[in-house]
């Protein structure tokens, strides 16, 4: 529930610029595709967790860290175990991999959504002289990701209430019916949310063709530069390491 709207970073020790957080998101995608080692992904995730904590969400950061640590531990134990049945090893490796692969991206989106005000996001990117037509879809995209999760939960509960479960067996037996039952209510309620968002943005004069002014102070501070350099360095390092790993492979 708390994910519904863009959050704020009033309690944060450091306040990062929305552009820096957006860069974290892009870098997360690049990192998970180009770092060929568990340790690289782990170090990057630790940096993200630190950013999350510094932005005023230390408890949530700790929770995420514990989950991430547990999964990494499971992965390490499993890879070194001798007696485990190979089928289970393969399955758990695949599951933990999907987790590891997606965790930095998801975490960077959570950081962006939970510690940024939407007006700050818009004004920061407008300061880069990007057209508002490019910024709004991205702002709405990030704002809507938690809404999708919420609507999905709502649909699932409503279905359970009417005695329909979303068990794998049921999904496999009636795939089309499941799609219809899940997708249609989700789209309907999401469209209602979109209409409300559009109405709210109209009320704020977002549709005017004049340039918008803002109370937000938009400036990259020292902390932003430090983080940008750090993340950029890590991504480049991961790329170089990735290439060296690749060189050693005979595929």
């Amino acid at each position: 529930m708390e994910l519904t709207f863009y959050g704020e970073d009033n309690k944060g020790i450091l306040k990062f610029d929305p552009r820096t957080k957006f860069l974290l998101f892009i870098a997360s995608g690049l990192m998970s595709l180009s770092s060929y080692s568990d340790s690289g992904a782990a170090v990057y995730t630790v940096v993200l967790l630190a950013v999350y904590a510094l932005c005023g969400k230390p408890l949530s950061a700790l929770k995420s860290a514990l989950i991430f640590g547990a999964v990494m531990y499971l992965r390490a134990v499993l890879q070194n175990s001798q007696g485990a049945p190979p089928m289970i090893v393969l399955l758990v490796t695949a599951l933990t991999t999907v987790f590891m692969f997606g965790f930095p991206s998801v975490l960077s989106i959570v950081i962006l959504v939970r510690t940024t005000r939407i007006s700050h996001f818009l004004s920061a990117f407008q300061a880069m002289h990007l057209p508002i037509r490019m910024i709004v879809p991205f702002a709405v995209f990030f704002r809507f990701l938690p809404t999708v999760a919420e609507e999905w939960n709502g649909v699932r509960k409503a279905m359970a209430f009417r005695g329909m479960t979303l068990s794998p067996a049921e999904v496999i037996r009636h795939p089309l019916r499941t799609v219809e039952y899940v997708l249609i209510p989700m789209l309907f309620s999401s469209m209602a949310v979109m209409e409300e968002l559009a109405a709210a943005s109209m009320a704020r004069g977002m549709d005017a063709d004049t340039k918008r002014s803002s109370y937000e102070e938009v400036r990259l501070k020292a902390a932003d530069y430090v983080l940008i350099v750090l993340v950029f360095g890590m991504t480049v390092f991961a790329f170089i390491m990735g290439y060296s790993v690749k060189g050693g492979m005979n595929v």
């Binding site: 037509r133 709004v136 879809p137 709405v140 999760a149 979109m194 559009a198 549709d207």
Partner: peptide, 17 residues
């Protein structure tokens, strides 16, 4: 219009998820 941009961004989120 802004309204269309909002629709596109929001549907984008549903699509990607």
């Amino acid at each position: 219009r802004t309204k269309d941009l909002i629709f596109a961004g929001a549907f984008g989120a549903i699509y990607i998820v």
